[in-house]
Amino acid sequence: MAGWIDLAGHRAVVTGGTKGVGRAVVLALIAAGARVATSARSKPDDLPEAVHFVAADLMTPAGCAELAGFAEATMGGVDILVNVVGGSSAPGGGFSALDDATWTRELDQNLMAAVRLDRALVPGMTDRGHGVVIHVTSIQHELPLPESTMAYAAAKAALATYSKALSKEVTPKGVRVVRVSPGWVETDAAVRLAERLADQAGTDYEGGQKIIMDSLGGIPLGRPARPGEVADLIAFLVSPRAAAITGTEYVIDGGTVPTV
C-alpha cells in the first residue's frame, strides 16, 4: 500500500477497528501514513502502538460522543471517517422472533453508530472544505436472510439510504461519502463459524466454508473475501486517487449478488 496510497498528514477515525475488517482498515491506513484513532469497549492486547485508542460503547450516544471528542482533542479534527462497526446478535426464527429490544439493538449498532459519529465529525469536515466518509454496509441489504439476519439487513439498508442522502448534502461542501458493501468476509468470527458448522456436519474446514457459501447461493469466486482485501479497497476510496468518487456503493463479494 505504501507508495501507491499516500495518506501522510491525514487524520482518521475507524470504528470497529480492533478486529476483523476494522482492524485491517486501521493497519492499511497506518501503512499509508495516516494517524488513526479507534475504539472498542475494552482495549485489546495486540493493538498497534501507533493507534490512538479510546474505550467506548458505540451502540450508545455517550460512546459515540466520547470517541468523537477524543478524536477532536487528540488529533485536532478528522479528515477520514470509516464506519465499520456492525454485526448482529438477533435470534433465528424469522420476523416473529424479533422483539422491540432486538430491533433497537440492531439499529443502534448498524445504523445509529454511524449517524451519531457523522453528526459529530462531518460538520468539521464541511467547515474545512474536505473530508471522506465511508459507510460499510453489507450485501445483506440486497440479499436478506429471513431466518437470522432480517433486522441486520434492514438496518444496513437504512444505512445505505442515509449514506446516499448524506452524500447529496455534503459533497458540494467538499466531503465525499462512499458505501462499501462486503459479502462474506473471512474474519476470525467467520472462521469460527465455518469450523463449528464443519464439526456439526462431520467435515473439514473447506466443507464448513462450502456450507456457508451454499447458504448465500454460492460465491462464484469460490472463497470469501479477506479482511485485507476490503481494507485495500477502503484505503483507495479515502485517498486522493479516488477524488471524483462519491455517493456510490462498491460491492466486494466475490460475485455473490446474482443480479445487476
Rank of each mutant, 00 (worst) to 15 (best):
M1E: 11
M1P: 04
W4R: 12
L7C: 05
A8Q: 10
H10V: 14
R11W: 01
V13L: 10
G16R: 05
T18L: 04
T18R: 03
T18P: 07
A24D: 01
V26I: 04
V26S: 00
L27D: 02
G33F: 13
A40K: 03
R41K: 15
D45W: 12
P48Y: 06
A50Y: 07
A56H: 03
L58I: 09
T60K: 08
P61F: 12
L67C: 09
L67V: 06
A68G: 11
G69C: 14
F70V: 10
V78K: 01
D79K: 06
V85T: 05
S89Y: 13
F95Y: 15
A97Q: 02
R105D: 12
L107W: 10
Q109D: 08
L111Q: 01
M112R: 06
A113M: 10
A113P: 00
R119W: 06
L121A: 03
G124M: 11
M125K: 02
G129Q: 07
G131F: 03
V133E: 00
I134C: 00
T137G: 10
S138L: 08
Q140T: 12
E147R: 12
T149G: 12
T149D: 09
A151M: 08
A154T: 10
A155N: 06
K156E: 08
A157D: 02
A158F: 00
A158L: 11
L159M: 11
L159F: 03
Y162G: 00
L166Q: 01
S167V: 05
K168V: 03
E169Q: 13
E169F: 08
V177N: 03
V178G: 02
V178E: 03
R179Y: 03
V180T: 04
S181W: 00
V185K: 11
V185F: 00
A189W: 08
V191F: 14
V191L: 05
A194D: 09
Q200W: 12
E206L: 15
I211S: 06
I211K: 06
L216K: 06
L216Y: 13
G217I: 12
P220A: 09
G222Y: 10
R223F: 13
P224W: 01
A225F: 07
R226M: 09
G228P: 08
V230D: 01
V230H: 04
A235T: 06
F236G: 00
F236T: 04
L237E: 02
S239M: 02
E249G: 07
Y250Q: 10
G254Y: 04
G255I: 09
V260Q: 11
